[in-house]
């Protein structure tokens, strides 16, 4: 598992570490303790970036981020299903 220290991440993105902690508190990401230091998974970076844009650009609070995350995942799986169905229609046309 590849991780990055929260401290390093926050310095790079110029955001407070409380942002990451808040994301963790609504279970949008998981904070991992490695040798007394807090880390996040590299795989979660894309998700964190998205949450940063929504929070800082659009003033979306953390509870709403959780709702948005849930709904966008649903949209994503529905879009995938739609692609499969469209291809199925092409097959019968």
């Amino acid at each position: 598992m590849t991780t990055i220290a929260v401290k390093q991440f926050c310095k790079y993105y110029n955001i407070p570490s409380s942002f990451i902690e808040s994301l963790s508190s609504v279970e949008l990401i998981e904070i991992i303790e490695i040798k007394n230091s807090k880390h996040v998974r590299i795989n979660d970076i894309q998700q964190i970036e998205k949450m940063m844009r929504l929070h800082y650009d659009l003033n979306v609070n953390f509870e709403a981020l959780d709702v948005i995350n849930h709904l966008t995942s649903q949209i994503h799986s529905l879009q995938q299903e739609l692609i499969e169905l469209k291809n199925k229609i092409d097959f019968y046309q």
């Binding site: 844009r53 650009d57 709904l71 966008t72 994503h76 879009q79």
Partner: peptide, 15 residues
């Protein structure tokens, strides 16, 4: 602006 940006932001309007 904020109201419309929330509605049309690419992160909440996939593809």
């Amino acid at each position: 602006y904020r109201k419309l940006a929330r509605k049309y932001h690419p992160d909440v309007n996939l593809n």
